[in-house]
Design a protein around this nucleic acid. Structure first.
Lengths: 200, 200
DNA sequence: TGTACATCAGTGAACGCGCGTTCACTGATGTAC
DNA sequence: TGTACATCAGTGAACGCGCGTTCACTGATGTAC
């Protein structure tokens, strides 16, 4: 039953992409190697032909998730720039669809679990967060580079916090209101150009 | 080895308080009944004299954690009022000490896990969040009741988001910077009284 | 180009291990008289 | 108030079960000549 090199590479990629979604859906601790393999249409025994351990899969699939998040936000900005690009990104990120998606932002779907992961995984998270901050800062042209980064850090923190809260709350009205208020506040913040006097 | 009624009640309370800390330290999925019992100075067999299941312990101990969070924030406000009270609360919440504490805010230490918990637990989380929003809103006297609640929802979301990010990031400088920028932004936001024009 | 053999992707069953839960047992506490 | 018995908090071992990982096996693919 040996497969060709190309098929082996495709299988590995399929496991990786399946895992990225399954970990976000069920949590890292809550998703087993067998769950991932069955979801990828395989049996668990074959897993170790592709990865050395569950930890290796976690590390690699999360790095992919962070990249995919950045790509998804860049995509939501399309060819807009400045406040219009940020507004589009915020609208998509703080939407009910994103909240209810199994492929939700990894900082939100895995936030508290990531804090207990290996240094490797948390290094990938650091890069992922820094990339998001850069992406937002690039669209705050009225601020200096340093000030834009600081402002962007707060904007991204608010987005992650609001979506985290919206997902864990059981009351659908409160949840939708948390998203709506964060959207409104961030819209005003990015359109006023500078938020509330970021300095130094 | 039967114990008196008072001692039984004290033991139950001890298990509850131990569990509240252990779940926040190691996660719900990552903390076993035996871990909690050993940390409480007991053996695992005795657990079921006090609780029907691990789920029942989770529900009850998390409700306690949400109450303890409110009490802790109220305590950090002491007898201050308005912006001064909020500044004190923000400073304590977004501190390095709080970030590194095993008894960290449950919305942060368990955020992504809570989204997958039972409706009961998430109901408790809804009440816990609403209570924090009320506490903050009460100290925004320049705004109408409704506007203050909306503003408070964004402030609390930002606090939770910034602390979540600060905990999962491996780079200590970036982590400290995320907290510092959120503190600065929120200080300005609460001292200006209205943030950025909350409406409706 | 064709043949013979080595490789290895994937299967399905098995392995320890730790988990939540149960249980027989103990002896101090609570209750009935 | 004192006595006899029932209750039950806590112990320590055991139970299934699911997990991550390993392994013998298969047969198609890759390689050496």
């Amino acid at each position: 039953m040996r497969k060709s090199r190309e098929e082996t590479a495709r299988t590995r990629q399929r496991i990786l992409e399946t895992a990225a979604v399954e970990f976000r859906r069920g949590g890292i601790a809550g998703t087993g190697v067998a769950d991932v393999m069955v979801a990828a249409g395989l049996t668990q025994g074959g897993f170790y032909r592709h990865f050395a351990s569950k930890g290796a899969l976690v590390k690699e699939s999360l790095a992919n998730s962070f990249d995919a998040l950045r790509a998804s936000i860049e995509d939501s900005m399309r060819d807009r720039k400045g406040p219009a690009a940020l507004a589009a990104a915020i609208e998509g990120y703080l939407s009910l669809d994103h909240r209810d998606s199994p492929a939700c932002c990894p900082f939100v779907s895995l936030g508290s679990e990531l804090a207990r992961e290996s240094h490797d995984v948390r290094d990938a998270a650091t890069i992922g967060f820094t990339n998001l901050v850069e992406l937002v800062a690039r669209n705050l042209p009225s601020l200096s580079r340093g000030a834009a980064r600081k402002e962007a850090s707060v904007i991204v923190s608010t987005m992650i916090g609001a979506l985290t809260v919206a997902r864990l709350i059981s009351d659908k009205d409160v949840s939708a209101a948390v998203l709506a208020q964060a959207r409104k506040s961030l819209f005003e913040r990015v359109s006023s150009g500078s938020g509330n006097r970021p300095g130094t």
